[in-house]
Design a protein around this nucleic acid. Structure first.
Lengths: 117, 117
DNA sequence: GCTCCAATTCGACGGTCATCGATGTGGAGG
DNA sequence: CCTCCACATCGATGACCGTCGAATTGGAGC
């Protein structure tokens, strides 16, 4: 359903009158938007999005050393990207022995998904 | 369902052996990931995400002059953000008289939504 | 304790981004 | 034509980002 707001001046208007009604945007929505933007920003890099894609497709946990050869970047750089994803709460890691295993935290992606829906 | 891949070394391993099997990631997925990252990047700024939020909530078209007072940035800066959203294909605009009206292109958001689902 | 190795952290560098103020553009009214 | 207004574009600036190589951390085996 499309609500036809009355805030759309048809074509032109005499000078003095306001061209449009103010649109309110509550602070609650602003805060939520900030969080959503944080998530989107973390996903806004091709490598990071591919990493999440890989992790999602391998429903379990994936070792960093499996990830590195997938991309044309150094291992420290990948580590940097993984940290960004961790800071955003999109993935988490667990250390077993020498290796670190990463996995997706579905709740984070659900936040975005819920907004988009 | 969780598939237990055999690429997870339990804890430790003797030196010579590979710690994990390679994970393949097809080029098709890479290209899609690049597009999705482009979308996410465009949404990865609080102001831009709020703009999209406002446009979505006002199912119709919204004039730029309604948008400007919502944010603590200058009009040129908002115009810059709108261009980013347009370049990403997330919104589009239509000029009527003196005013420009922006609206969301749902298909773009659907791409992201489909990936997250 | 010493060594090896996976992974993280650090310091630096070049490129991109958000923001600003000033300027440009183009439609509408007089 | 000339002015006014909404919006876009430009040029500059400071902050942030992705990348690298080098150094550091910490678990494991000898």
């Amino acid at each position: 359903m499309t609500v036809e707001l009355e805030l759309t001046p048809k074509t032109k208007r005499p000078k003095g009158e306001p061209c449009c009604e103010p649109v309110v945007y509550p602070d609650v929505d602003r805060e939520r938007a900030a969080r959503l933007a944080e998530l989107a920003k973390a996903l806004g890099d091709p490598i990071r999005l591919q990493v999440v894609d890989v992790l999602r497709k391998h429903a379990g946990q994936v070792c960093v050393c499996e990830l590195v050869p997938l991309f044309d970047i150094g291992q420290p750089t990948l580590s940097h990207h993984l940290k960004k994803l961790r800071d955003a709460g999109i993935v988490d890691s667990e250390k077993r022995g020498l290796w670190s295993y990463y996995y997706v935290k579905p709740e984070a992606l659900d936040e975005l998904s819920a907004w988009l829906a």
